[in-house]
Design a protein around this nucleic acid. Structure first.
Lengths: 220, 220
DNA sequence: AATATACCCGACCATTTAGTCGGGTTCAAT
DNA sequence: ATTGAACCCGACTAAATGGTCGGGTATATT
């Protein structure tokens, strides 16, 4: 469910966030985590205990993981990237259908890396594997993976992920015209018919990237 | 030039590669670099000097960067990922044209992160920004970025990067048929004509991913 | 035969580094 | 008023860690 992502809530104090952001930036710049001394400087404190207090909280909350007493051994966990909106990870929600929409999105629990450029996105993103051939003329084939960003506004021509009723999701091109049928979802394969808009149709997001199937694990 | 990537040659001894591979794997698994002790264990040696010797060579060759005497402060440079064929980076070659092919690929010198799944690729990959509207029906719009993998074999229907003569490159759908015109490059926009195959046409690679333009820097 | 390179040993040292101990302050909730 | 949390201080300790020194071997090149 897309709501599963949007609804993810975590608590963190401003000071903890300061440290988490410093950790993120330091690791990004240097390639390895900072020492206590460096963390103290960045936080403008002079005691190790100040840093330790914050680190323990961050670890308990699931943002980081420390390896005992090894030097510079702090690893950022996915939750940290998510909180900082710098996520190199997108949740892999499962499978949807580009053809006739016959089942809802499944949550697979997997996570996959995506481009760091996409990490600039403020909104939530997630991945879906496509079943069916209804979008082949838009370059989306059976087995491809699409990266979807949650959106509220859509332009005619956008390729969108739509939910139809409670049990079906599908990827189609969204069309808005001045003449009838005005609003509809268009498959990019002449074999299939357009889907008119009804109260049952909810658009979840835009497809912002397509990863071709041959470089991903095969479909079961 | 695509040849620029293929032609990149670096020398490394087996022992140095052992260490480099260990560094890659350790960092990938833990999120931070190993200590000397851990490197000694992985190499099956007992002296620090053994590790230092190798590290100095790796640093001089441009594979890693060490930060003085700071603990666990080894960063892998892009060259290392490239050598290990685990590159999280793809070179950004520049701009090509999906419309009329009017100029050759420019090397911009930028590098961009790509999916870690794509890092499994054994062949070279690179990014291009698309100019023109000749592939809009395949989901590739003006300003989008495509990820291209160098290939030698192509199937009918593949979206390919082709070089035409010395000064032109273009992205088109490759078609191979039993009836005339047999082999040609097809724009995915009825406004444009197909490009027949000649001796001048060289296919450089396949488009394996499309990143939609709105999430990248605007075109100059 | 001499040289250079890649690689290794083992004892030793100095510093970096994480962690501890016993406190304190501020602020909001009870 | 008391409690608990979040956060901080300063001096201290012990372990982890990188680096040094003065060698060695094996191999290929000159």
């Amino acid at each position: 469910m897309v709501g599963y992502i949007r609804g993810m809530i975590t608590t963190i104090t401003p000071r903890q966030k300061d440290l988490l952001l410093f950790l993120y930036r330091y690791i990004k710049n240097t390639g390895y985590p900072p020492s206590f001394e460096e963390m103290k400087q960045s936080l403008n404190v002079v005691s190790n205990q100040s840093v330790i207090d914050l680190l323990i909280k961050l670890e308990k909350a699931g943002f980081i993981k420390k390896n005992g007493s090894a030097a510079r051994s702090i690893a950022l966990l996915p939750l940290a990237y998510q909180l900082l909106n710098k996520s190199p990870l997108a949740p892999f929600l499962g499978v949807t259908h580009a053809g006739a929409p016959i089942e809802t999105i499944e949550i697979s629990g997997e996570w996959q890396m995506v481009s760091s450029e996409l990490a600039q996105l403020k909104e939530n993103i997630f991945l879906l594997r496509i079943c069916g051939d209804s979008m082949i003329n838009a370059g989306i084939d059976h087995g491809d993976i699409v990266l979807v960003q949650s959106h509220k506004e859509f332009a005619s021509g956008d390729i969108v992920l739509a939910r139809i009723g409670n049990n079906m999701t599908t990827v189609k091109r969204f069309i808005s015209e001045d003449k009838p049928p005005y609003l509809y979802l268009k498959p990019e394969n002449p074999k299939y018919k357009i889907q008119l808009f009804t109260d049952e149709v909810i658009m979840e997001g835009k497809v912002i990237s397509v990863l071709k199937n041959s470089y991903w694990k095969p479909i079961k």
